[in-house]
Design a protein around this nucleic acid. Structure first.
Lengths: 186, 186
DNA sequence: GACCTAACTTGTCACTGTCAAGATCAACCT
DNA sequence: AGGTTGATCTTGACAGTGACAAGTTAGGTC
């Protein structure tokens, strides 16, 4: 396994470590060389799989959109459940989420990334489709996406920490559900 | 003005250039040395004003929160106007906005930053306060903040570009208003 | 006029991403 | 079996970066 050459799954090992490190220290402090060291390979090994820094982030974002699509698809019957699933994903996979919407870190026109992004977009759209008698589905989708994305981002960055906006509840999903329920889509 | 030493407003010049560059190339590609060169000073000059990279981002974020507070306070009478003002700020000052909620780039416990953040938080709260008969103001504030923050972030990163969610309208403020009006706070 | 301090420069260091060239190994072909 | 091929990883090098230390300049103050 650790026998120098060809240990097989270096690509996924590096991706896992990258997600971990980004989750704990932030995207800005991620070093490809440190990543290689953690994975037990030489400093230039990751480049073979990802090309460059952007390539690594692109791969991570792609994986993230696939995970998101899966999460959204297995969510409960209601649009509210899909919305909460978005938040759950963002907080469960902060390393992926931190990269997925960063157009300066990612090669936005990458084939696989575009496809994965489209898949998760469709999953979200299907969630909206479960609402009945909506006059403007596009606006609903925009609103729903904006709410959950904003809430997850702000929570993740600790923006709510100082403010006394959250009562005693420290569970983000619960708060998210409360907000989503309050926002009446119709 | 460009007479080498003491040209007086180097600090604000650097901040302006930083905001510009972040807006155009993203936070990740910002180099302190390039910034110094653009400002016509030696590579270590900015460090004297900001300490280190985090210090620069912290100063930029502080300026951003002050600008945001001003924007929110001059916004129209309705909560909807305040919400749209948030979006307007985020898109008018992308260089600031990109840094304001990045806890990995900023010294979150910085005195000035904390104060400025509190000021803009209060401005947002005042906007919510203009609504009448709200049973749970905190939840409304959370929801409103999440919607506008998410929408601005997603728009800024081009997340809506591929999807056909936006009709023909390319004006973000207009779309934002449509969404905010749809989301019935009560 | 001497001094003080903020503002800026110069020089240097370890570290980073990227590239080029070489080494190793598995799989395949004949 | 032996040789070839190609993917995987290593080694070595280079320019650019953030950070630090020490020196230089100038605006003010006594």
């Amino acid at each position: 396994m650790a026998d120098a050459y060809h240990h097989g799954d270096l690509r996924s090992v590096v991706l896992r470590h990258a997600a971990d490190q980004i989750a704990h220290e932030g995207v800005d402090r991620l070093s490809l060389r440190g990543l290689a060291q953690r994975s037990g390979v030489s400093h230039a090994a990751p480049a073979h799989h990802f090309g460059d820094r952007r390539g690594l982030f692109t791969a991570l974002a792609t994986e993230g959109f696939d995970l998101l699509a899966a999460e959204l698809r297995t969510a409960g019957p209601d649009l509210r459940d899909v919305a909460v699933a978005y938040v759950r994903f963002a907080l469960a996979r902060p390393g992926h989420f931190a990269v997925m919407f960063r157009s300066d870190l990612v090669r936005s026109d990458d084939r696989d990334l575009v496809a994965a992004r489209r898949r998760s977009g469709e999953a979200l759209r299907d969630g909206v489709g479960r609402l009945e008698q909506v006059d403007d589905p596009a606006a609903v989708q925009l609103a729903a996406w904006s709410v959950v994305h904003g809430f997850a981002s702000l929570w993740r960055e600790g923006a709510f920490a100082g403010s006394d906006l959250l009562g005693a509840s420290a569970d983000p999903e619960e708060v998210a559900r409360r907000i989503v329920e309050r926002v009446a889509f119709s």
